[in-house]
Amino acid sequence: MKRSLYFYRLVFGVGLLLLWQVASGWLVSPVYISSPVAVAGRLSELIASGELFRHARITAFEAIAGFLLGSGVAIVVGLVLGRARRLAEVLDPFIMGFYSLPKIALAPLFVMWFGIDMSMKIIFTAAVVFLVVFLNTYSGVRSVSPEQQTVFRLMGATERQVVRMVIIPAALTWVFVGLRLSAPYALVGAIVGEIIAGNRGLGYLVARTTAQFDTAGAFAAIVAIVTLGVLLNMGIKALERSLMPWRQMEDAREVAI
């Protein structure tokens, strides 16, 4: 079952690459889409010269730092606002307004405020990540069963004990949903920042190679971005597993049914 799944995935992936290779030069000019073979060649060049890792390191740093900053602030604000019902009601339309704004539109302003170095990309990434994690943490805190809290208050638990024993762990599931959802956005933040203003990072590499009609180079950079995204996701999943072991049990149970 599992093995045949991997097999079909492999078939699909190889088929896609073959189609790309065949189409390149025959249906579409390689100037536009390059070809898998050319991309692989360019990728190994970029790896060999160390250029790819230099850029990838910078992008990874920006994405992770922005992600940590944004989600850290978001979790705290989400916990606080989740408890302060009245304040949350007052702020609700503003939060939703900010939520519906495509954060990319803010990028030029961030350049004006914070310049074009790494701190701008980190802050921009943090802003992008913040809302997703905040909204999830907030709804997580709000969804903690009031009955559950009452049961603990009747045991004599103080507010702090209720928060520590019930609310924070209950919200954790939601926090991780937010973290997983926002991980790709962290990369978006960093890459957009680099494309708009910068001379380092994978976003810059995509922009530069494209401008030079080095399509294979652009695709090579994109491969690196995808890899980074997958690694980021795996890191969050591993963290989730170690912080919430009971979730795994639930998953195992679901499979057993």
């Binding site: 069963s145 009955e147 559950q148 009747l154 209950a170 009971w246 639930e250």
Partner: peptide, 14 residues
């Protein structure tokens, strides 16, 4: 007083 309802209200993470 102590409460027990239809829902066991155990903490799933413990």
């Amino acid at each position: 007083t102590g409460y027990m309802t239809q829902n066991d209200h155990l903490l799933p993470w413990r």
